Computed example of a mutant assay.
Amino acid sequence: MKFQTRKWVKPEDLNPNGTLFGGKLLAWIDEEVALYSIIQLENYRVVTKHMSEINFRSSAEQGDIIEIGMEVIKFGNTSITLKCEVRNIMTRATIITIDSITMVCLDVNGKPFQHGKTEVSAMG
């Protein structure tokens, strides 16, 4: 798994319990997976189709630095499927895992588009 992105947990990222708000973390993940997919598929028109079960395993607190890791599981005709893990960069404790996130490549009309990719490029 490639850990490319780091986020610093700030006060505005916290829930009423003083830990990282899960919705904020999912937004960070969705953005990172979208950016990664855009680069891999060489198309700016990529949307989230599906996320499998989301497993919150531990929390993060203000001041923690987390890192988002992704790995390509497979390329479909119009899609790319990845798995994701987020962990605390200092303790290496896993915060969340998502076994499958499917992103779909679209054409200019918003319809699924065959991207022709079959393997991870060095750009990713």
Rank of each mutant, 00 (worst) to 15 (best):
35 L>N: 14
49 K>I: 05
24 K>L: 07
122 A>P: 03
65 I>E: 07
82 L>M: 13
18 G>S: 08
25 L>Y: 00
56 F>S: 10
87 R>W: 01
6 R>W: 02
35 L>T: 11
56 F>L: 14
62 Q>G: 10
53 E>H: 14
48 T>I: 03
119 E>Q: 15
98 I>C: 00
36 Y>S: 12
28 W>Q: 10
85 E>P: 03
38 I>M: 11
99 D>M: 14
22 G>S: 10
113 F>E: 02
101 I>W: 00
106 L>D: 03
51 M>H: 02
110 G>Y: 05
39 I>Q: 10
67 E>T: 15
27 A>Y: 06
83 K>G: 15
104 V>M: 07
18 G>L: 09
110 G>N: 07
88 N>E: 01
106 L>C: 10
55 N>R: 15
92 R>C: 08
13 D>I: 05
2 K>Q: 08
112 P>S: 07
123 M>L: 13
78 T>E: 05
122 A>I: 14
45 R>D: 06
100 S>T: 06
62 Q>C: 11
45 R>I: 02
54 I>F: 02
54 I>T: 11
60 A>M: 04
73 I>F: 04
14 L>W: 09
65 I>W: 11
108 V>K: 07
62 Q>I: 11
54 I>A: 04
16 P>M: 12
117 K>R: 15
70 M>C: 12
100 S>W: 00
54 I>K: 06
102 T>M: 12
117 K>S: 08
67 E>F: 06
78 T>S: 15
39 I>R: 12
66 I>R: 03
115 H>S: 13
58 S>I: 10
70 M>H: 10
49 K>Y: 10
121 S>R: 15
106 L>I: 05
70 M>N: 12
105 C>Q: 01
80 I>M: 09
12 E>T: 14
121 S>F: 04
32 E>M: 00
21 F>P: 06
97 T>N: 13
60 A>T: 04
46 V>N: 06
51 M>F: 03
17 N>H: 15
115 H>V: 11
75 F>N: 02
31 E>H: 12
12 E>D: 13
80 I>Q: 03
20 L>K: 04
87 R>H: 01
114 Q>T: 14
24 K>C: 11
96 I>D: 04
56 F>G: 13
103 M>N: 00
37 S>K: 03
82 L>K: 09
99 D>R: 13
114 Q>W: 08
